[in-house]
Structures are given as structure tokens and as C-alpha cells.
Design a protein around this nucleic acid. Structure first.
Lengths: 188, 188
DNA sequence: AGAATAAGTCAACATGACTGACGTATCGCA
DNA sequence: TGCGATACGTCAGTCATGTTGACTTATTCT
């Protein structure tokens, strides 16, 4: 059995540090989702509804298949939550202009309200954590999470934020009204 | 509708930065659990089994009620996975010495093997992310996640790691064999 | 014209959470 | 000493969210 105590042992420290990272992820993620979950349960929705609402709000006019790529769930799973969101007037579908087979998804007024209400609790949590940890810590936080996630997902996240915070956008061309072609942002 | 493009607008940046944090959490957590999930599904287990095995391995001799506090699930939910782990020989129960009502949980040899196999994929993921991000980034990562999680959970995580990495332990007394009294570590 | 693509739908199933109720053994205190 | 509190186990039912597999319809592309 391994010696679990020797504080000077670098292997022990490494093991402890890695486990600490694992545990921080577990506990932080649970806390991160707890408030939205509570609000959602009051109106008979679950976490899956939040995810759909969040990304439809994030990429207005997103298609079903693009949303499926982001969420990595099956069409049937998405269908269940989406049909509820449509029925209850949080989301609307319109046909694609170029491709009439596509259904473009957009939040309604009340959809935006709900999204705002849900995401705001998470934004506030992050804002507080960022404030108390400092700007340098935020950069470190992002660097580590970026190293953990799937590179394809990272691509998608970074597309929307300028790398140096001085106005230089990556795909600033070929956009017309503040919302670009979604296919570019989502990535296949 | 809000102007989503003006790169010089500080409010836009703040909003974007916060959303980026939210998305990093979503994507990173999914990736973080994907490998263990894959392994578990091969042997007919799920994520809940990993969580139980992980924390029993982390706190050998932990009681049922302490485990419930950590996992924040109901006794009935834990019971299902735990009875499978007991039946299939990954975990053993012994009666508490001081309090005979308690069932102390410990991993068996094969339980430790499985835990090692599952957690190792996560450790490697963290090790790679830590390596590429650097030590300072790791400190930032931890600071931000610590700010997001429940303070009670943070307490529990920090109890096991010396604050300055030089061997000073918080509760280095009253331990006998490298494993302290669990009640202290778990926290109520 | 026919294959490929986007989306919708039906059915069945697994997992992991929940509530509520009740039983048993043990501990601790008045 | 006896009784309430505690630790654990269990039965039963429900719900949310994921899965696989099969099939349909409308539209686009070659």
C-alpha cells in the first residue's frame, strides 16, 4: 500500500493535486447547476430545457442538427424538450431561407426572459468568483478548462470572443447584422 | 435588441466573458466524465457507481451517512448502486467499532483496481491540462472553482491537502495510520 | 430521376434521481 | 432502565433524461 502521509513526497503531492482538481470539478459543477435546476423545477422543466434555451439564445436561428452537434444528444431526446418549449411559447421555428428543410430556432420574448433568468444566476456566480479570484486567475481557469475540453468544442467557444480584448474579431467579415451564419459558428 | 457586435463596449465584453465561463464549464465537465462513463458502461455500471467508488476510495471506512452528505443524494438512490457494488465484490461493509449501527465502507482489491482505472483517465486529462497551462494557471483554476462551489464542499476538499506544499497538515495530530477519523474530514 | 439530407415520430428501454412509508438495530440520555 | 433519536435497509411508485431502432416526409443536390 502506498504511503499516504509523507508530505515531502512529490508523488503524493501530485496525486493529491490531481484528485483535488477532480473534486473541484465535481463540486463546482454541481453548485453551478443548482440554482437553474431549482428555478426550472418550479415550472416543470429540467436541465435539458435550460441547455436548449441557452444555446438557442446564444445562436439565434440555429438549426436542429447544429443544436444536436453542440448538445451531443440524439434527435429523439432533443425532440422531447424542444416540443415542450415550442408548445409553451418559449421558442419559435421558422423555415430556412436557403434550405427549406431546415427549421431555424429562435427564442420568443418569454424565451429570452426565461433564459435571462436562468443564466443570470450562473453569470452572477461566475462574476463573484472572478472578482474574488482576480483577472490572472480567470486566465488560468480558462486555460485549464480549455485543456480539458474537446478541441472541437473549444473552437466553438472561442469563435465568439475576440482573442485580444481590443476589438479584433476573427470572422468580422461576412456578417450582416450582428449575427453571422450559424453554420460557421457551430462547426461540424 | 442589443448590439452584439461593438467590440469596444465593456458591457459586451463582460457578458461575453461570463458566458464563455459558463460554456467552458459545460463542455469541460462533459469531457471530464466521458471516459469513465465509457468504461463503466462496459461493465454495466453508470456514473453514480463511479462517484460512490471514488469517495469510498478517498475516505476508506466512510459511513453511509457521511457518503450521503458528500453526494447529496437520497439514501434510496445510494442504496441501489451500493448494493450492486457490494454484491459484485467491489466494496465491503464492516460494522463501526464505536457505533455498531454504522456500516463502514471500504474498497476491496478489485474495487481499488476499478477506481484506479476510472480515475486514472481523469487524472491524465488533468495532468495534461495542468502541464500545458502551467503552475500559475492551475492556481487560478482552483481559485475560480473554489469561488463557485459550496463553501462546505470546499472545506472538505481542502482538509486533505496542505495549504503551503511543505508538509504542514491542518489536522496532522490524532491520526494513527495515514487515515484520520472520517467524521472530521467529511464535515456536516 | 434518384440518392442524400433535415427533420419528425413511434416504441421500448436504462439510469439515476425523487417522495413517502415503514422496519430494525443500536445508542445515549433523562 | 426505558424510551426517543439515530443509522441503516427496503418496498413501491414516479419523473427526467438519456439511449437504440425503425420508419416517414419534404427538400435539395447530383
Amino acid at each position: 500500500m502506498v504511503d499516504l502521509k509523507s508530505g515531502a513526497n512529490p508523488l503524493f503531492l501530485r496525486e493529491e493535486e490531481l484528485r483535488r482538481g477532480i473534486e473541484l470539478m465535481f463540486y463546482a459543477y454541481r453548485e453551478f447547476t443548482s440554482e437553474p435546476d431549482r428555478i426550472l423545477s418550479e415550472i416543470g422543466f429540467g436541465r435539458a430545457h435550460h441547455r436548449a434555451i441557452y444555446f438557442i439564445g446564444r445562436y439565434p436561428g440555429i438549426t436542429i442538427s447544429e443544436l444536436l452537434v453542440i448538445l451531443r444528444i440524439t434527435k429523439q431526446s432533443l425532440s422531447r424538450v424542444l416540443s415542450q418549449l415550442l408548445e409553451q411559447g418559449y421558442v419559435v421555428q421558422t423555415r430556412g431561407l436557403r434550405d427549406q428543410r431546415q427549421r431555424l430556432l429562435t427564442l420568443t420574448e418569454s424565451g429570452r426572459d426565461l433564459e435571462e433568468r436562468l443564466t443570470d444566476t450562473q453569470r452572477q456566480r461566475f462574476a463573484a468568483a472572478y472578482r474574488s479570484a482576480g483577472a490572472e486567475a480567470v486566465a488560468g481557469f480558462r486555460a485549464v478548462l480549455a485543456g480539458i475540453m474537446d478541441p472541437a468544442d473549444l473552437e466553438r467557444v472561442e469563435r465568439l470572443l475576440p482573442s485580444p480584448p481590443d476589438g479584433k474579431r476573427r470572422d468580422a467579415d461576412e456578417e450582416d447584422s450582428g449575427r453571422g451564419k450559424l453554420a460557421d459558428k457551430v462547426g461540424r
